[in-house]
Design a protein around this nucleic acid. Structure first.
Lengths: 343, 343
DNA sequence: TCAAGGCGCTAATACGAATTATCACGGGTG
DNA sequence: CACCCGTGATAATTCGTATTAGCGCCTTGA
């Protein structure tokens, strides 16, 4: 058993085995190159001492020397675990953890990144991004300056979620929103809907913008009419009124939590969903809600995105190569809030 | 803007500012001791270069020299994120993350710790435990050898959940099960119950053992009768039969998921809960279940345990000191599955 | 008999920052 | 004029591991 005092170093092992620190390092790394030769008996002796003492290499020193430590950073702009956003982020993290585990990597959560009282920034006073070989970025909106800086410093990273260029192309794995939204619009129009609404910000970050774009393009391509309904500071009731005033028959709601609220409000007022109004949900809820409505919409492949981000990061670390940019298809969810236009 | 090539070092900053690396380090660490003097203008010049280049110290090198890096390791014997156990672990992690963030620490998740195909071990071939300043251990059952080794190597750690000695006392923050179970037994006996059952393993790890102990002691102290019902490989129906055969009127169920299943099975058979049988749940579900029963029992202060573990770890790192061992009180949950004994 | 090369290992050094031990320079003092 | 001391910096060393460049010794081949 190890003495409780100071930690063992290769130097100690070397002393005990009667060899040099170099030899211990070579044995430890199982170097059998033509350049390096170690007598089997010496190797065995060193290995025995290592076994007996239970020595393990200090990962910090290793990283300093080798410039690599099989640690992947995970930066989230919001806290990872807190319940408010947990349901939304959990699947991404699940994928990230799975993949990291398979690759034998540890995950470093940059929980300390919060700048004084404000929202988190990647580069704060003494940033630890560099402790990891590379990192995965998570968050609805990612700071443009942070991205630019990551790119400029050549820090390997992959964003989960598409990002616009920030001085240079940003490596990402995103959800392919436009075709998913387009497919929903297609179906609605196929069921006779002509007056459609996009309910939500449709801007502010790439993902809402992408959905909005998909909506606009599809509406234009099919010759339907599309209106835009903002949700900020409005009750579900007010939204319903605006929809009805605009004679909308199918509402494409950016945030499923809003879709649920609107559905409830409608049913309270005796408005049938989807009989009188069809509701389409564009993604996964980012706020905690009891989703007791079987919403028609699509599924964001969050877990797959997490996995893929780690895979791409690994490739980036391995071989460098091109800036990876991938969009993963969203799967349509049948649900029961889309019906033919009321006659 | 930084050149995309090699990373800046203090040496580079020193060269640019026309000073030595030492000076850069001193300025960076804002050392103003009596021993160390730097002319205001020199300091300003160095700071300007640092600002202009956006230099940040390499945390790895820092750690090697300083023997401290404000990284806390989190070791879980099961995967952290996967949904199966996510609901159980989430609150602990929430507390851990909160506290780490406040203290300006990052969290290192040892996801790579899985030994070849087997369950996780802390010390595998190249363990990274030591990358962190200290670590928090999470998991129902923690390997005794791992604990002994952590203690022997003097690695600072705090276990979430009480642990028996492993060669030496183990630092922990646990839930104080015995008084919580005792309080429930008290109430049951106060309501006339005399034949009580402990349903669950009651052994295998510290936490079930603690509950069992609380149960036994309370039953003995109050002069009631207690039986032990094992759950492994038994259907809820079989459990119910055993309970009824033993004329038990109040069942103390270790695992709330089982409590839910038993309640459902009972109601299906026309057995009233709590009219005919009272059900007490001892803690939080470790398996995913739809908890649609308002169980009487107690709440494990998981979030607080996470927080406290990090706080204690911090103290341990700061000042060394005694092996901290704390038990946090569980809060009783009223629920509606406890009623007076049927007459 | 001597250069060429194989063998098994080690000394020296790099990695980037922190710390310790000095050092050069003036100005005041004895 | 020699001495001391405060000032403002730096050279050298440390942390633990990985890598590079050899070093002696022994065998071969011509």
């Amino acid at each position: 058993m190890t003495a409780p005092g100071r930690r063992l170093t290769q130097q100690d092992i070397a002393r005990i085995a009667g060899v040099s620190q170099t030899t211990v390092s070579l044995v430890l790394n199982n170097r059998t190159d033509a350049e390096v030769r170690i007598a089997p008996e010496t190797r065995e002796r060193v290995l025995r001492v290592i076994r007996e003492t239970g020595y393990v290499a200090d990962p910090v020193a290793r990283r300093l020397a080798e410039r690599r430590n099989r640690i992947l950073g995970v930066f989230t702009y919001e806290a990872v675990f807190p319940t408010a956003s947990a349901d939304f982020y959990h699947p991404f993290l699940l994928g990230i953890e799975e993949c990291a585990e398979e690759m034998g990597c540890d995950l470093l959560l940059f929980t300390s990144a919060r700048a004084a009282g404000e929202r988190r920034r990647i580069f704060n006073e003494d940033s630890r991004v560099r402790l990891a070989d590379g990192c995965v970025l998570l968050g609805r909106a990612v700071d443009r300056d942070d991205l630019a800086r990551l790119l400029a410093e050549g820090i390997p990273f992959v964003s989960v979620g598409r990002r616009d260029d920030a001085g240079a192309p940003v490596p990402y794995v995103g959800a392919d929103y436009p075709p998913a939204v387009r497919a929903l619009v297609d179906r609605a129009v196929g069921l006779g809907h002509r007056r459609l609404a996009y309910v939500g910000a449709g801007a502010g970050a790439e993902s809402p913008a992408d959905r909005m774009r998909g909506f606009r393009e599809a509406v234009a391509a099919l010759g339907a009419e599309g209106v835009h309904v903002q949700v900020t500071d409005r009750t579900p009731g007010e939204l319903l009124e605006e929809l009805s005033a605009a004679r909308v028959t199918a509402a494409f709601v950016e945030e499923p939590a809003d879709a649920v609220a609107i559905t409830h409000a409608a049913r309270e007022r005796g408005l049938a969903i989807p009989g009188d109004l069809s509701i389409l949900a564009l993604g996964a809820p980012t706020r905690p809600v009891q989703v007791d409505v079987d919403l028609t919409g699509f599924r964001i492949p969050r877990r797959e995105m997490g996995r893929r981000a780690v895979e791409l990061l690994a490739e980036l670390l391995e071989s460098g190569g091109e800036t990876p940019q991938e969009l993963l298809a969203c799967e349509l969810v049948e649900g029961s809030t889309l019906a033919p236009i009321p006659s």
